[in-house]
């Protein structure tokens, strides 16, 4: 089932295209890794797909009314903003906003979803703590739990694993894989190519606002492709432990 479809998405800033004619379809069961160098347009693609930034082209999500869109896709922004020292469970419960009636407190279904999300991200023990007083990694997991509590068919996550320790990075990607196994879809912008290689079902490489490669991790991270997209020499092995990717050295440091 198609969860998101963008066609010819273009975003211009001061006349220059920061996202240039991007088309992408995401279906249930997929973990799509969005990769590319800094400034390639990963964040802009996620924001434009959601309609958070004015764009030319078509996006199935941006076309929806705000509440319907919030039920169709959850978004984890890159900046981990928590403005007020609210309790962790209150913060996670913000994910229930699109499901709640205009008045009244949380329903039993809301509470159950919040509990599930916190359990999944292993933050249930933090429930009563002020979210601003957590460690960076704990805060990142709490914010992912907020996205899970939204219980949408599709999740768009911008660098969800940045700043997490290796165990938490793997656990987070495994949560996304489990969601995909349930038939949901995940689009995740990542800088860690080794992590992406192991946990994504499909990869889309952006460079200078355009899609320059897409396919299985093995195709996108093959040496020729890695050199073209990232300007690095890299090794990609299909080992008995799964795909292993290691960047080795810079081959060209061209400015895109």
């Amino acid at each position: 089932m198609t969860l998101m479809e963008v066609q010819g998405l273009t975003v211009r800033r001061r006349g220059a295209a920061v996202l240039d004619d991007v088309s992408l379809t995401v279906a249930g069961g997929e973990v799509v890794g969005l990769i590319g160098p800094n400034g390639a347009g990963k964040t802009t693609l996620l924001r434009a797909a959601l309609g958070l930034v004015a764009a030319e082209g078509r996006s199935s999500l941006a076309a929806l009314p705000p509440r319907a869109r919030a039920k169709a896709a959850a978004f984890l922004p890159q900046g981990r903003e928590v403005a007020w020292p609210v309790a962790v469970e209150v913060l996670v419960a913000l994910g229930r906003a699109p499901h709640r009636a205009t008045a009244g407190g949380l329903s039993d279904a809301d509470r159950a979803a919040v509990a599930r999300a916190m359990a999944r991200m292993e933050v249930a023990h933090l429930a009563g703590r002020p979210a601003t007083e957590l460690s960076g990694g704990e805060q990142a997991r709490v914010l992912i739990a907020r996205v899970l509590a939204q219980e949408t068919p599709l999740i768009l996550a911008d660098e969800p694993t940045a700043g997490l320790d290796p165990a938490a990075q793997i656990a987070t990607m495994e949560v996304f894989a489990a969601l995909a196994a349930e038939g949901r879809g995940v689009v995740v912008a990542l800088h860690d190519l080794a992590l992406a290689a192991r946990h994504c079902t499909r990869m889309v490489a952006l460079k200078a606002g355009r899609i320059v490669a897409q396919g299985t991790p093995a195709e996108v991270l093959a040496p020729a492709s890695a050199a073209r997209v990232f300007g690095i020499e890299a090794r990609y092995d299909d080992s008995p432990d799964g795909p292993l990717f290691q960047a080795l050295r810079v081959v060209s440091r061209e400015v895109p």
Binding site: K71, A74, A83, L91, L143
Partner: peptide
């Protein structure tokens, strides 16, 4: 009230949560 609660997560997150 609801919109301000959502804004705790920043403008992008609030908008993606359905806040106008």
């Amino acid at each position: 009230g609801r919109g301000l609660d959502a804004l705790t997560l920043g403008e992008d997150a609030a908008e993606a949560l359905g806040t106008d």
